[in-house]
Design a protein around this nucleic acid. Sequence first.
DNA 1: CTTATCTTAGACACGGATGTCCAAGATAAT
DNA 2: ATTATCTTGGACATCCGTGTCTAAGATAAG
Lengths: 198, 198
Amino acid sequence: MPEAVVPRGRKRRLDAERSRAAVLDAAIAVLGRQADASVEDIAAAAGVVRQTVYAHFPSRGALLAAVVEHLTAETTATLDTLDLDTMSEVDALRRWLEVSWSMVERYPVLLSPVMATAGPGADDVARHRSVTARLEALIRRGRMSGAFDTRLPEAWTVAAVVALGHAAGQEAGAGRMSPRDAGAAYRDSVLRLVRAPA
Amino acid sequence: MPEAVVPRGRKRRLDAERSRAAVLDAAIAVLGRQADASVEDIAAAAGVVRQTVYAHFPSRGALLAAVVEHLTAETTATLDTLDLDTMSEVDALRRWLEVSWSMVERYPVLLSPVMATAGPGADDVARHRSVTARLEALIRRGRMSGAFDTRLPEAWTVAAVVALGHAAGQEAGAGRMSPRDAGAAYRDSVLRLVRAPA
DNA sequence: CTTATCTTAGACACGGATGTCCAAGATAAT
DNA sequence: ATTATCTTGGACATCCGTGTCTAAGATAAG
């Protein structure tokens, strides 16, 4: 596995950075539709030739890893602008759900198996870790404060929230529900599942 | 695509039927662990050579289709022995969840993408149709009788139940929860999601 | 403008999986 | 015991994807 070329004799040509970005974007788009898309497919969608992809990413796996990295970074960054800690648990969860859902809507690849299999930790949860970490902390806080129900295991609750997100994404992606309705159903369902009974 | 050989000059050798069954069972087991297992892998697990697989199934796709067919048949058969119509909606749903969960436990391949991609209708829902049809009917009945909540779309409710089943399977399969706990959490979550508020 | 960088086109090697063919031997049916 | 069926081993063609190499042409940086 050779490394991606990053010359230092002169300045990096912005041309190159444009190609790299195009490939990355194309990968996000294409893999969102077909998880096992070939490098050829991605290159074509990027308006580039296959060799150019290898000029920026040493291997297919490295490209996938870059996709995962890119998206998790953006998602966690977005989540961190929310100041979830300063609001009530229920509001914070609502906010978290809104943001997560908007990300899923924008990047369907987020629910693709690609996110699980790519990257160092090839575990379905380990991959979402940096994103679900916020959720986990939030849920723990709500459970301790009495705002959330504690009858179900904490880890299960997290898994359930993720799974319902997948379901909403499927329904919207398959055209069985409008993205709006899917998002609403998602939020309502999670709240019903997580909130402490009155 | 040649057809599977079914001679009629003499009687079918039970030897052959044993091989066929072994291959089918091996496929169910192996694909449960690795969705993209090769015909070679499956043959090896069946204690058979690759060519023998092709002697019974014309192609890889046909084998997958046979797996799907086999499992959906068994599952629907099991579900039909329950007489769900004669009990209360909540009891019926509980029963449905128990049976479905036991099937998922026994056949992890049921949550594999194999079930979606194989078979004629390559739709995630269309494949489960014969199984989820029972669930759908059940949910509709409960919604009309007032036992279930009607604030969420019916189709969404079905999707959510399936998704939570996947989550439970994942958690149990990954060893993060015991199968028992996962099943319990699954049932509790679904009931909490579906039941009408008191 | 000069030069280094980037993209492209065309090959090529390699590995892995699918599907096919055939001949020989094992095995069950009659 | 005879015969048709089944499994096996070996070999082979094919397709597809990955990854590498090279030379030529385009393009941005200095």
